[in-house]
């Protein structure tokens, strides 16, 4: 009996020594459940003096105007052009400029951390644009930062279509710089050089945003044709991005 009591007291004493570590583990579980909100916000606060300057923002704006002009040239039907014009009517107010404060474009995760979060109106699922076209979508937000899942990430799936032939497909990230476009049908008639834009049928991203250019086509793929797409937005060099306010 005495031995049993001693053992119990010994256990209690060791528990007493462990409680700071248990507290730390609970705190870290909190960090994990909040998707790293304290860490990401602390990093944003510490790195704020090193964020890109406003000149980059001006450059981004002018580059985006060029991008929009090229898109207008690509639109072939009146119906699509009218839809695009309607979108542009409120476009200026629906974009939030944000600095890229962390970048992982190789390795297991392809993601960006941007310096605007839920306090600035960034929401999960919002499309993230850069000069050249679509970069990805917001996957999670903290009050002052947001994590962006790039189109090249393993888990990225976005509905797109090839402008010339008007065939829909699913742009799937492979963890490489070039995602693959999986068509819904065999032999869709796509060829290298075709421009890929976001699909008007997609519920995740705004329609007709440039995504990239078809680089290689595999017509022998099963169950349907596949194409490797070179993304048009230079994710390695872009310092400022624009986020669509309110998701799609």
């Amino acid at each position: 009996m005495q031995a049993g009591r001693g053992f119990r007291f010994g256990q209690l004493r060791s528990l007493g020594r462990l409680w700071p570590w248990l507290l730390l583990l609970v705190a870290l579980l909190g960090v994990r459940l909040s998707k790293g909100a304290p860490l990401a916000d602390a990093y944003a606060l510490l790195s704020r003096p090193f964020w890109p300057g406003s000149a980059q923002s001006e450059w981004l704006r002018s580059a985006q105007q060029i991008d929009q002009q090229s898109q207008l040239l690509q639109l072939q039907s009146d119906n699509t052009r009218l839809r695009r014009l309607l979108q542009l009517a409120g476009a200026d107010n629906s974009l939030i400029g944000a600095a890229v404060i962390s970048r992982q474009t190789s390795g297991w995760w392809h993601q960006l951390l941007i310096g605007k979060g839920s306090l600035d109106g960034v929401s999960v699922g919002a499309a993230v644009l850069a000069p050249g076209g679509l970069l990805g979508r917001v996957a999670s937000t903290t009050p002052t930062t947001a994590a962006v899942q790039l189109l090249s990430d393993d888990g990225s799936r976005v509905g797109v279509w090839v402008l010339r032939i008007r065939r829909h497909g699913l742009l799937t990230g492979l963890g490489t710089a070039r995602p693959v476009l999986r068509f819904l049908e065999k032999d869709p008639g796509v060829r290298p050089g075709d421009v890929v834009v976001t699909s008007p049928a997609s519920t995740l991203v705004p329609p007709n945003i440039t995504v990239g250019v078809v680089q290689h086509v595999d017509d022998l793929a099963v169950p349907a044709s596949e194409a490797v797409v070179q993304l048009s937005a230079p994710v390695e060099s872009v310092d400022w991005v624009q986020v669509r306010r309110g998701g799609r």
């Binding site: 570590w21 730390l24 583990l25 870290l28 579980l29 960090v31 994990r32 909040s34 998707k35 790293g36 860490l39 990401a40 297991w108 995760w109 993601q111 996957a139 999670s140 994590a147 899942q149 990430d153 393993d154 888990g155």
Partner: peptide, 16 residues
């Protein structure tokens, strides 16, 4: 314990 703590912190920063 340090491995678990680092794992929790890093998992919170990664997507997926």
């Amino acid at each position: 314990v340090a491995g678990v703590a680092l794992g929790l912190a890093l998992d919170s920063l990664q997507l997926g």
